[in-house]
Design a binder for these strands. Structure first.
Lengths: 174, 174
DNA sequence: GTCTATAGGGAGATAGAC
DNA sequence: GTCTATCTCCCTATAGAC
């Protein structure tokens, strides 16, 4: 789903990949949209968990932001995968409100978390040039997702790194 | 293609939309990938033409950047369309090198143009806080495409505007 | 919970008349 | 260059045995 898009793979693809039959997948996820919803729900739950883990072990805004950038970098694979929320955005006409709701939750959780991170970075001086944490948060999510697209199109993590460099350059050196 | 993705529409959809038969479309574009290539080529040619038009009629970096942001904003429709290059990124495994080449050309033309715009904005002081035009250019393209995704997911141009606000706030008022 | 078998439809694509 | 007709294949999805 993250490398070919929602319409780019079939139950037959999954079946042969995991060594099971199509009908067995339909037992767990009757319709394909059920599978999309389940993955998006899990993706969102993972986000909550991992952002909590970052908050627990990193204390400065700069350090927290650095780890979130790293998470996006890792999620890109070798330039062959996208954030699930990005991948599903293109096919969103195919989904009902439950999937859309999950995607909106994912985005608002991301932006809210980033806003608090920029607020911290402003307070503890671990991120430079922060004037408006709310605007920074929305811009930052756009940069991370846009950098994913750059890396994906060119099949190169380097393009991701280049696109987020303006961001990483603002993190205080330790 | 820009609202449902490459795999999200069929020749039958096109045929009924324009009042023609599937076979007639196949006469012009034998395989679906031919259609994808043709659209991407046209999209890229349009970019060249429109950036030239911006250069011809706007002289400051800030004014030029403002018009490119406006172009992306308009391209979003009412939050139901994406940049073609963004939409095809997800399905890029389905394409051969010719389409990928066109997408890479599109991106490098965008970034090169943006770099020169930031250089101008630095020189004529029409864009504030420019330290590294090359990094600004790559970040800017990411923001524009990421802002598209934000607007698309929420079906709202307002989300686009919010995501690019950090950028528009840097443009000198006149 | 997984299997075989199959339904039912729509996909991309082609042949050949006009 | 557009049409009708059709091909072949694969899609999502279901029925029912084990």
């Amino acid at each position: 789903m993250r490398s070919r898009g929602f319409d780019g793979f079939s139950y037959a693809d999954l079946a042969s990949a995991i060594g099971i039959r199509k009908a067995s997948i339909h037992y767990h996820f009757p319709r394909k949209s059920d599978l999309g919803l389940a993955l998006m729900q899990r993706y969102r739950a993972d986000l909550d968990q991992q952002l909590d883990a970052i908050d627990a072990s990193s204390k400065t805004g700069g350090e927290r932001l650095k780890r979130q950038i790293r998470r996006y970098r890792d999620a890109l694979g070798v330039g062959d995968r996208l954030c699930l929320c990005v991948a599903l955005s293109i096919s969103s006409e195919a989904f009902d409100d439950t999937v859309t709701h999950e995607m909106l939750s994912f985005r608002s959780r991301s932006v809210d978390w980033l806003r608090s991170v920029f607020e911290q970075g402003l307070a503890d001086q671990s991120i430079s040039n922060v004037a408006d944490p709310a605007a920074e948060a929305m811009s930052c999510l756009a940069v991370l997702e846009g950098a994913h697209l750059a890396g994906r199109t060119q099949g190169s993590v380097m393009r991701f790194d280049e696109a987020v460099r303006l961001l990483t350059d603002r993190l205080a050196q330790r």
